[in-house]
Amino acid sequence: MSLDYDKKLEVEIDRELKALPEIAAPATLIARVMASIELRKALPWFRRAWHTWPTSLQGLFLIAMLTLFAGICFGGWEATHTATFGLAVHKLGGWFSSLNAIVTALNALAGVIVAMIKQINSAVLIGVLCAAGLSYALFLALGTMYVRLAFAKR
């Protein structure tokens, strides 16, 4: 594949493609777009995009959101200073301690599995791993083939 050939081909294809005229849009397109616009206009303001809301409503919405945010911050701050909050923290601690026990049990289980694997003959282990790898490759190949068949151009 010579560079000269590649360059000539690039120039020629570029010339051909740049010379293509615009394709005429379907005659119904304008009507479709205008109908869509009318449909959107008919929607109530709260179902339209926020930037299309009336300015006064946008302002009111911003104020309401800021008030809500301040309320949540203030409420959160107040809640941390109540006796109920202390109780809730204590309860959460209890939950996490049971989680800790689960993690310890899983670690022990993993240790047992590792010890069992060490007992198995390495040749058997390699064979099992190879079989698993082959099965995975087979499923991937079959899946690819099915997808290619399903989407093949007919």
Partner: peptide
């Protein structure tokens, strides 16, 4: 409209999809 439709059609190569994109 022709410019937008051409751009979409040349990329997606499907007139119905190109029309939806143009809209």
């Amino acid at each position: 409209q022709n410019m937008v439709y051409s751009t979409a059609l040349r990329l997606v190569a499907n007139s119905a999809e190109a029309e939806d994109i143009t809209q």
